[in-house]
Amino acid sequence: MKFSRPAAAALLGVFLAACDIGTGSTPVDMVIIEAFDADVAIGEARQLTATAYDGDGNEITGRAVEWSASNPAVATISDDGVLTGLTLGRLAVTAEIAGARDHQQFTVIEPFGDCPVANHALGSTTAATLTSPDCRNVDNRYTDIYRMSVSTRREVTITMRSAAVDSYLFLVNAAADRELAQDNDSGGGKDARIVATLDPGTYIIVTTAYSPGNGPYTLTTQ
Rank of each mutant, 00 (worst) to 15 (best):
M1K: 09
M1D: 14
P6R: 05
P6E: 04
A10S: 15
G13R: 14
G13P: 11
G22E: 03
S25M: 10
P27A: 05
V28P: 03
D29G: 08
M30Y: 13
I33Y: 05
D39Y: 12
A41H: 06
G43K: 09
E44S: 13
Q47I: 07
L48Y: 03
L48H: 06
T49R: 11
A52H: 00
G57D: 05
R63G: 00
A64E: 04
E66W: 02
S68C: 03
G81S: 02
G85H: 09
T87E: 12
L88V: 12
L91K: 10
A92L: 14
H103L: 13
Q104L: 10
Q104H: 10
T107C: 02
T107M: 02
T107I: 08
P111Q: 06
T125N: 06
T126S: 09
L130D: 07
L130F: 03
D134K: 00
R136T: 15
Y146N: 08
S149M: 10
S149N: 15
R153A: 15
R154S: 13
A163I: 07
S167P: 08
Y168D: 14
Y168A: 14
L169W: 09
L171E: 10
E179P: 02
Q182I: 01
D183R: 06
D191A: 14
R193F: 01
A196E: 09
T202W: 06
V206T: 11
T208C: 08
T208K: 10
Y210D: 15
S211R: 13
Y217L: 07
T218R: 07
